[in-house]
């Protein structure tokens, strides 16, 4: 299961940050998740609930997920459009010379700690 692997990575990175900052209790972890990051929020939360029971300091930690809209840029007509609705082909000019501006993020934004 894909989300399980990324949750392990998040736990490991958060634990490292806690160690560096001498933190013993984390109330909340805030993630920024792009619409096309390939990670499904509901599964991520399920895996999180399972994984934190196996940690020392994250047992009670809430996971907040903030979604980032995916936007694609067209090199030919220089317009931007929503990726999820139109995919790789520009809805204005039909060009395939497009690239993703944002929306594939998977970022640990911040921790709320005591």
């Amino acid at each position: 299961m894909h989300e399980l692997g990324v949750v392990f990575s998040v736990v490991r990175q958060v634990e490292t940050v806690c160690m560096e900052n001498a933190v013993t209790k984390v109330n909340k972890v805030v993630l920024e998740l792009g619409e096309v990051s390939t990670v499904i929020p509901a599964y991520l939360v399920d895996c999180w609930q399972w994984a934190i029971k196996r940690t020392q300091i994250l047992q009670e930690t809430e996971l907040e997920i903030r979604m980032i809209d995916a936007v694609t840029y067209c090199e030919d007509c220089e317009k931007e459009y929503p990726t999820v609705k139109h995919g790789k082909i520009c809805p204005y000019c039909g060009s395939e010379k497009t690239y993703l501006l944002c929306g594939n993020e998977f970022i640990i934004k911040e921790l709320e700690v005591e």
Binding site: N21, F106, E110, L111, E112, V113, E114
Partner: peptide, 16 residues
Amino acid sequence: GDYRIIEVKQSVFADN
């Protein structure tokens, strides 16, 4: 609550 925020801003994929 008596809490503070730590800014992390690390990509999870960056770790890998």
